[in-house]
Design a protein around this nucleic acid. Structure first.
Length: 422
DNA sequence: TCTGGGGTCCTAGGACCC
DNA sequence: TCTGGGGTCCTAGGACCC
């Protein structure tokens, strides 16, 4: 019998922060996005105060201060390492684990389906908690979409106490009839609005929609979604990582940038990072897009959105080639005057290094590849951007804000927590 | 003063071909 | 005035996810 599980960490970033700082337990905590811009994780206490996902911190500052909400800058090194530990704790409880996002994994539970899966899931949650302190919820169903619904029910409805198994048709119907259609995985704002005009407001009503009608209203994506709600699997638990199609390094600046040289400095660093990322995946890129733009929320200020796409011949993962292409793009798209607040590099047409098409006249590729390997080794060992090209220009006025970032508790020896006993 | 940073998939429509 | 009937490939943009 098919049984798909979804384990999801509760308020993951906040829980990671709490794992190493007990002062944060029991008080309202918010983790801010890069640049301390928006609220992207909230403790239950913060949710109860009305802090919503994506709220700009500066707009809710007063409320945060009034209620003593602790705001932490995001610390992705910590969260990434904690994810690894959560997955390790889960592995023995499933035959396959598909890491879906930094805080969620799909599980193939079929081999365990003859036992009580609620007991099984609770054993898994206990192990995650023992190994990482992170609280989780588990949803179980015959398809991924139903496992997602189950997970949300497990989290929201105290009746389930952290684990919901929707394989039983009666329980499933009970939950779907009370589940807002807008909260279904894959139903966003636009689709929810269209469904509302048809009077479809619950997941149960969407389940009962004709497949053809679903396709007409949305696309094949909505049709598959309806099938999954009916218990017919349209996707499976995927273990192998799919080949990446694109890759990006983009950042908002800590302060607006109006001069070309400073912007170049930022873009240069993103290009170096993009190259590093490509090489770590063993890929080369055929196309690079560089962009920079002003603050779109400030309609009162002059706006400019500069962007250039540059073909990379030959395809490459060489940081210096990416850097040169990015510079050309910025120069071509530059406009004097506006204050820019964000820039980025996007790479497309990604191909595995071994499958890179060879061209004539590509120079001494091996020598450059060795240089890049050396660069990665130095930076891997001594910290990112220890070795950089001399022309990079390392003025850092644009560097993003992170005013309340926790230490790299688990990944830097100088920052591991010290425990003393007497 | 201050609004994240990644990704995926699908479709429509244009360019081009015979 | 009137203007076929297929294809393919590519790109931009929308919608969605966390």
């Amino acid at each position: 019998m098919t049984a798909i599980g979804l384990i999801d960490c509760n308020n993951f970033y906040v829980s990671c922060e709490r794992a190493f700082d007990p002062k944060l337990v029991g008080v309202p905590v918010v983790v801010a996005s890069n640049n301390d811009g928006c609220a992207i994780a909230r403790s239950n206490e913060a949710k109860a105060l009305g802090v919503r996902m994506g709220d700009p911190i500066h707009l809710i500052r007063d409320r945060l201060d009034k209620h003593g909400v602790v705001v932490r800058s995001s610390n992705y090194t910590l969260y990434g390492d904690m994810q690894r530990r959560v997955v390790a704790a889960v592995e023995e409880f499933a035959s396959e684990v598909e890491i879906y996002s930094i805080d969620e994994s799909f599980l193939d539970l079929a081999p365990f389906a003859d036992r009580d899966l609620t007991v099984h899931a609770n054993g898994m949650r206990d192990q995650v908690r023992r190994w990482t302190t992170i609280p989780t919820c588990v949803g179980i169903g015959p398809t991924k979409t139903l496992a997602k619904v189950a997970n949300a029910a497990a989290k929201k409805n105290p009746l389930f106490d952290g684990v919901a198994d929707l394989r039983d048709p009666a329980i499933r119907a009970f939950v779907l009839d009370r589940f807002p259609v807008a909260d279904v995985w894959g139903v966003g704002r636009a689709t929810a609005a269209k469904l509302a005009t048809l009077g479809v407001t619950t997941a149960g009503q969407l389940r009962d929609m004709q497949l053809k009608q679903a396709r007409g209203l949305g696309t094949v994506v909505l049709e598959r979604l309806v099938a999954e709600l009916q218990g017919v699997a349209a996707s499976v638990v995927e273990v192998v990582e799919p080949r990446r199609k694109g890759m990006a390094v983009t950042r908002s600046f800590g302060a607006p940038v109006s001069d070309l040289e400073t912007l170049m400095g930022a873009v240069a660093q993103y290009a170096m990072r993009a190259g590093e990322k490509l090489r770590s995946h063993g890929l080369v890129a055929g196309q690079l897009t560089v962009f920079f733009h002003t603050n779109p929320h400030r309609r009162d200020l002059p706006q400019h959105h500069g962007s250039r796409r540059i073909a990379l011949h030959p395809m490459t993962a060489d940081s210096l080639e990416l850097l040169a292409a990015a510079r050309r793009g910025v120069e071509a798209a530059w406009r004097d005057g506006p204050a820019y607040t964000k820039a980025g590099i996007m790479l497309d047409d990604l191909v595995a290094e071994e499958q890179r098409p060879r061209t004539l006249f590509e120079g001494d590729v091996d020598r450059r590849a060795r240089l890049m390997t050396a660069l990665d080794e130095v930076n891997g060992r001594f910290g990112r951007f220890t070795a950089v090209p001399a022309a990079q220009g390392f003025a850092r006025e644009w560097r993003m804000r992170a005013e309340a970032k926790s230490p790299a508790w688990t990944t830097r020896i100088a920052e591991v927590p010290v425990v003393s006993a007497r």
